[in-house]
């Protein structure tokens, strides 16, 4: 086929595609000629420049960016679906590290002070000291220290809450 008959068939097939479904061979012909033939390409894109200029005027050419609040909603949905890590779980996992280390240091200091100076002036057997981190509400980070002797119990509560 020569170029003009190719162009004619190209045009006919493109026009026909609005009315009926093209065969695989016809579609392949359009694809091939649309790339190979300068004439076909020019005819195919005859309206391209005008339409592209009009698209420049479309407000949707520049889509207003989603706000931080919008993204927070999407993030929350993705977290619920398990696509993003749960930030609360992360903070739960991270909490023991710093506050617990600080609480432990304080605890050791208090225990040392009690062992060194005692709680009263009366001689007595070495006090029994029990330190424990209670299962308090999330993020509380409280630390309670018991000091027991014959006369009672001293309870020290260290809290980062």
């Amino acid at each position: 086929m020569n170029e003009s008959s190719d162009l004619q068939r190209f045009q006919e097939l493109i026009e026909a595609s609005a009315e009926r479904e093209l065969t695989e061979v016809e579609t392949a012909f359009i694809g091939r000629m649309g790339f190979r033939s300068e004439q076909c390409r020019q005819w195919l894109e005859a309206d391209a420049e005008v339409v592209a200029a009009a698209v420049e005027q479309d407000p949707l050419r520049t889509v207003p960016a989603a706000t931080t609040l919008d993204w927070a909603r999407v993030d929350a949905g993705l977290r619920r679906a398990g696509a993003l890590p749960d930030s609360r779980a992360q903070s739960r996992n991270a909490w023991p590290l710093l506050p617990a280390a600080a609480a432990l240091l304080l605890c050791i200091g208090v225990i040392n002070a009690i062992l060194r100076d005692g709680l009263s002036t009366t001689p007595q057997a070495p006090p029994e000291v029990v330190a424990e981190v209670l299962d308090l509400p999330e993020g509380d980070g409280s630390l309670i220290l018991h000091e027991g002797d014959d006369e009672g119990v001293l309870m020290i509560i260290l809290s980062n809450g």
């Binding site: 016809e26 579609t27 392949a28 359009i30 694809g31 091939r32 649309g34 009009a54």
Partner: peptide, 24 residues
Amino acid sequence: PVGTVMSRLYHARRKIRDALPGDW
């Protein structure tokens, strides 16, 4: 197929062009 993209784009462009003011 690429041919389908070309034909759809051709018809879409023509509809858009027809919708624009004639003297634009």
